[in-house]
């Protein structure tokens, strides 16, 4: 049944196709007059001689010095990589180079000065600002104390007496003079009882006069001056 239906459909379609060919329109031809234009030989020769239309291979210019250097470098690196990947010595060298780069990067990252690891550097560097105003070893104390007494500047005179006492102790190597040491530090360095007691009293008067800003009378200053002179006599010659 199915087969019969397909055959009848094919026959019907064939009939319509054959019938439609019979109804095609007739072909018409163009009847216009045509003008034939000849080529301009001169123009063609002109184009041929124009270098803009020359698509042939041009000669390559000679390499510059820089290009040759780059090419040489390229060859060297190429050979090194080739050696590094093929020979045992080359491999070792490559690892050493990578290790050195990593160590250098770490040192830079942590700001480590490698020289300090091998050579000791004294860290008693100079401060950013000037701190030393006076040098007790260059001061003329006798003269300065007299001057302060004459001007009735007893606080200043006590200060000078105290600095003079420090100079004596430093000269006798009884203390290690250092700008950052306190009066108590110097006191601790003294061994001899008499000198220690006298210096302790001088420190006391100096601190109350200088840091405590207490008024120093002429009489009190005279007592302190006498104390200093007698203390000085206790020092070894």
């Amino acid at each position: 049944m199915m087969k019969r239906n397909i055959i009848s459909l094919v026959l019907t379609l064939s009939f319509f196709i054959v019938n439609s060919y019979g109804q095609l329109p007739s072909i018409t031809y163009d009847s216009m007059q045509r003008e034939w234009r000849p080529y301009d030989a001169e123009k063609i020769d002109e184009y041929k001689s124009d270098p803009d239309f020359d698509y042939g291979n041009r000669p390559v210019p000679a390499q510059s010095l820089w290009d040759r250097f780059l090419a040489w470098l390229n060859t060297i690196i190429g050979r090194a990589i080739y050696m590094g990947t093929t020979t045992p010595i080359g491999k070792i060298l490559i690892y050493v180079l990578i290790g050195a780069i990593i160590i250098y990067a770490l040192l830079k990252l942590f700001k480590v000065d490698i020289r300090k690891a091998f050579f000791s550097t004294s860290d008693s560097g100079v401060l950013a600002h000037e701190i030393h105003h006076e040098n007790i070893h260059q001061m003329d104390f006798e003269h300065l104390i007299k001057e302060a007494i004459n001007k009735n500047e007893f606080k200043q005179a006590i200060r000078l007496i105290y600095l003079f006492a420090l100079k004596h102790l430093a000269d006798q190597h009884m203390i290690q003079w250092q700008p950052g040491k306190t009066n108590h530090d110097y006191l601790e360095e003294l061994k001899e009882e008499k000198i220690k007691n006298g210096f302790s009293s001088l420190s006391f008067y100096f601190e109350y006069a200088w840091y405590g800003d207490f008024t120093i009378s002429k009489d009190l200053f005279s007592d302190i001056h006498v104390l200093f002179e007698s203390w000085k006599k206790e020092l070894p010659e």
Binding site: S124, P179, G180, K181, W210
Partner: peptide, 11 residues
Amino acid sequence: DQTIEKIEIPR
């Protein structure tokens, strides 16, 4: 300590 020791005690 190092920083303080560097600074002069005012006298």
